[in-house]
Design a protein around this nucleic acid. Structure first.
Lengths: 341, 341
DNA sequence: TTGAAAGCGCTAACAG
DNA sequence: CTGTTAGCGCTTTCAA
């Protein structure tokens, strides 16, 4: 029942003032060791819990950074958040997570909530359904450091941390080519999101560089879901000239491909190659195991937080949008990042 | 750059006072409609964002509830949190998520963080590694409403929301018996957590009721991981009298079982039956599909929040510990909750 | 229906 | 080294 022990309570007991107690507890060097000891002891005995609300109000910052993710049920994001937390915690920040559930409306609410909570910075991975970005630019204009990770939007003046999706897709496609597949299809994602657009481009470039003509009928628009992988595959299998491999824009789509192929009794990888782009851990669980591009999620989280911290500390400008391709293996072209069971 | 618009700013522009503006914005009926309109308009034009920090300090509560989960990378928890958020948001609460990463130390930090943030209530699913529970009881004693969900600890005076694990395990085991398996093993989880202990008991009761003798060598201690499923299975396959089915305490363990069986070229389900206890979505992705007990995660989240809200509103006593078995299908014994592909 | 004033718990500036 | 004072932005009496 001692929830409301305050600095003043401690001060009273010790015949000193709240200011002194505050300083002692915050390790201010101007306070004598003896006094500090005494104060720390009684604070502990009285079960004092600092009231961060009051502290934040006074200091003008909250020590919280907000992260908006589309869904915690996508392993990929859980893992990135883990990376964010690791670094945030060692830097004295706490992380507040908000799920947009892939909805623009909820995403807007998330931004508002964070603004009201006076978080010190915001990290966001854009919802699939979001097509208007004014809540982000408004937040930025109001002065709060904000950075996109993974799902980003170019040319609206907000920094982003992404892997080199173009190169990743290029490598994934090249991987299939290297395995001897000749007619490689691609199931893409919503083209208004940069990551999906760049993966399509990487796919096309890889084919071109290998001297394989690009067939429009081999490029199917998907929407990042198991179902869209299935229907796209069904569609591909009806073509006169069927493809013999698919590069799926992400793992859920790839899973749909595999499910559909199985129903048609197409053998993987003998008759048909499949590669995804990692966002799920189930890749290693399904049979046949899914080849996929590793995204080093934890690293992505750490890098995102680092960039955000620089922004919060004014170490980098918020003005000219900068894109941070952090993934060493994708960046340097090391093929090791093709993860295959 | 208008991050610091305050009530006073608005008041000044309108020749009134912060008090009036506050009242208007909060819909106080004593303010005239005309004034309210005017105030709302200028607030919008000035891009006013209420400072919840200040508001919380004054009101004495934050409107935030804290949720501690072992890991956001376990789908199960993401899904429960989703349920929590749904209800929390419609009730005007925001949800702050903290990951313990299955570590007691981090879990303690989470509690402290929440206490400092003055959250209005805490929901926690206990970390695997936690063996001392004093941080929970201390929090409760300090007056904050706290409730366990899924991973709970009995007899320390804290309410919990769990499914009827005993009955769930009973059903899972009976399911295997019903399919004709005769020698059913069980790979269990850490016995200091109630859910795992109860699942073991349910397994034993099901065997007993079916007149099948309980063999100690068929009960393997696991630690809730793919690896432990594998090694336990390897161990079981070395027995003179091999089992012909396994009830795994949760899905990661079940996955390990399947992987190991595959390596030994044991056919599922023809030669060997496997059933898990749902905490992952990969059940539907692997081959052969994993039979598993559905836990209705979203419902669990909603129910947890409801109970917490009752506690926060003093509608139930925090004194006598109460266990809330909320899962209708497990509770009523409806076999439909065995989810099989 | 509105204003004036006080205060939530903390920290920073200024004294001493 | 420590105390005094003021104020962060908001809400809530109490008055008018």
């Amino acid at each position: 029942m001692s929830l409301k022990v305050t600095l003043a309570d401690i001060a009273r007991k010790l015949n000193t003032t709240a200011a002194t107690v505050s300083r002692a507890l915050n390790g201010d060097p101007s306070i004598s060791e003896k006094m500090k000891q005494k104060i720390r002891d009684t604070a502990r005995r009285m079960h004092y819990k600092p009231n961060k609300i009051a502290s934040s109000l006074r200091r003008g910052h909250s020590g919280i950074i907000g992260v908006i993710i589309p869904s915690a049920e996508i392993n990929f994001f859980g893992s990135v958040v883990h990376g964010i937390e690791t670094l945030a915690n060692t830097n004295g920040y706490n992380v507040l997570i908000y799920q947009s559930n892939e909805l623009q409306e909820t995403e807007v609410k998330g931004i508002e909530t964070f603004l009201s909570a006076r978080v010190d910075g915001i990290l966001v991975s854009i919802a699939k359904e979001t097509t208007d970005y004014s809540h982000f630019t408004a937040a930025k204009d109001s002065g709060i450091p904000i950075i996109f990770f993974d799902r980003s939007k170019d040319k609206i003046g907000i920094h982003s941390v992404v892997i080199d999706d173009f190169k990743g897709a290029y490598l994934a496609t090249s991987h299939l080519i290297g395995q001897g597949y000749k007619r490689i299809a691609h199931i893409s994602g919503p083209q208004h999101l940069a990551i999906f657009k760049n993966r399509l481009k990487g796919y096309q470039k890889a084919l071109k560089d290998a001297g394989i003509p690009i067939q429009e009928e081999y490029i199917i628009k998907g929407n990042v879901s198991v179902e869209s992988g299935r229907s796209a595959t069904a569609q591909l299998l009806q073509l006169k000239k069927k493809p013999d491999a698919v590069f799926a824009v992400e793992d859920f789509t790839a899973l749909g491909v595999i499910k559909e192929l199985k129903e048609h009794h197409v053998r993987i990888p003998e008759d048909f190659g499949v590669i995804g782009f990692a966002n799920e851990s189930f890749g290693e669980y399904i049979t046949p195991a899914l080849s996929t591009m590793d995204q080093q999620t934890v690293e992505m989280g750490k890098h995102s937080f680092e960039l955000l911290m620089k922004l919060m500390n004014n170490e980098i400008s918020g003005h000219k949008e900068q894109k941070s391709c952090w993934n060493p293996c994708l960046y340097c072209g090391n093929q090791a990042c093709v993860r295959k069971q």
